[in-house]
Computed example of a mutant assay.
Amino acid sequence: MVLGSDSTESTGHTPQGRDAAMDRTLTALYGGARSPGGRAPGERAAGLGASAPAAARWLGDIRTYFPGPVVQVMQRDAIERLGLAALLLEPEMLDAVEADVHLVGTLLQLGGAMPETTRESARAVVRKVVDDLERRLANRTRTTLAGALDRSARTGRPRPRDIDWNRTVRANLRNHVPLPGDEGAGTVVPERLVGYARSGRAVRKEVVLCVDQSGSMAASVVHAAVFGAVLASMRSLDTRLIVFDTAVVDLTDQIDDPVDVLFGTRLGGGTDIDRALAYCQSRLTRPADTVVVLISDLYEGGIRDRMVRRVAAMKESGVEFVALLALSDEGAPAYDRDHAAALAALGVPAFACTPDLFPEVMAAALEKRPLPVPEG
């Protein structure tokens, strides 16, 4: 590299002008600083300073010199390496950051310590990220699920374009008529048609999103809040949103506004999955028409075996159960492999799901067909 804390020593080149400014921003973050403004003895490191103004200037600099995705990576590194999270409690800092899902997760973890002077700025940052996600995900989700809801309702008097020919042929195999002179060949007379009924305005399916709000699940909580609002906007779905750690909170009354949902969460703490599922189970009214989506890394702080037994009981009652280790673009987190294997033995594969795949997963669950589990 020609930029960074060791660039002059390693290349003999001294950056000038814009390169020098970029070099300073990189050195402030990666040049050995141990805390905001601190450095190891003898190390060349500018640091970010111990104040919000210094950090805000640095955030402005990286947005000037680097593209958005790089800025987001550098912000995350600054939060982890230099203790930048504490400075996010200052409004001027929030005005300088590049908003993304990871930043929202950090803000939510700081929620309890956030002063009132910062709270409105934080809500504005969260609102921006939520609105961007809704624009990207909402239309495709509604379209995909509307089609699944249409197909999930069968009728014996379908319109021609709604005939399910595979099911119709199977239903009429006894009406096979052989063709003269061509042994083994023939045709099926479709005395009974099977097809899809178009959905009306009535609620026909129930969805329960049960979301682990432990600290490692921050990005998943953000996406779940957005998808919860999208699902709640569909008239043929009755959607509930439950978040949990060792306690259980029903946020269904706030589901229309993901920002309210997110500020109603409490990231961090322990996990009691069984207690959360017990609450969900107690709210089921039509198990055979219900999809329960558990979003959790499956690390159980409650009674381990009872959680698995509860999932088995819900499935036996007719519930379509989905287990997602994460709902984010970050891939699979660390997770409890024993619990994942136990769920798989019940016919519930546990896997990490990207936001782009989630509509397809929900469509498959609503139609009670195999889930599109990613390979690997």
Rank of each mutant, 00 (worst) to 15 (best):
N166V: 09
D23C: 13
A138P: 11
R235S: 09
G147P: 02
D257N: 15
Q213H: 09
G228T: 07
A21V: 08
V129E: 05
Y196D: 14
R198M: 12
R157S: 13
G264V: 02
D336T: 05
T14Y: 01
L366M: 15
T239N: 05
D238I: 01
E90A: 15
A247Q: 12
L277M: 15
P160I: 02
L371R: 11
S152T: 15
D6F: 00
R337C: 06
A185I: 13
G31E: 00
R240W: 03
G269T: 00
L277Q: 15
F351M: 02
Y30N: 02
Q72A: 11
T25Q: 08
T239K: 08
S282Y: 06
T290I: 04
V2E: 09
Q16W: 05
L89V: 07
M74N: 00
A146Q: 13
P115A: 05
S10P: 00
G38N: 10
D6Q: 02
R283P: 03
V226G: 10
A224W: 13
A146N: 10
R306I: 08
L110S: 00
A219M: 08
T252A: 05
V222Y: 09
R157P: 14
R157F: 09
Y196T: 12
S296D: 01
A148T: 06
D6M: 01
M362E: 08
G37W: 06
D245L: 07
A185Q: 13
E320H: 10
M217H: 14
R266E: 00
A148Q: 08
A352R: 01
A146T: 15
R192Q: 14
R174H: 13
A219P: 11
S199I: 14
E320M: 11
G264D: 06
A146I: 13
A313Q: 12
D100I: 14
L94C: 02
Y196M: 07
P374N: 06
R136K: 15
G270N: 09
P67N: 08
G268A: 03
R151W: 08
A202P: 07
S152C: 10
Q213K: 14
R135P: 09
I62D: 01
A364C: 09
T143C: 01
V243Q: 04
V208N: 00
V211R: 02
T285E: 13
P180V: 08
G195C: 05
R310G: 06
G215K: 03
A99E: 14
S296F: 02
S199F: 08
P372G: 14
R18D: 10
D100T: 12
I295K: 01
D162A: 03
V293T: 11
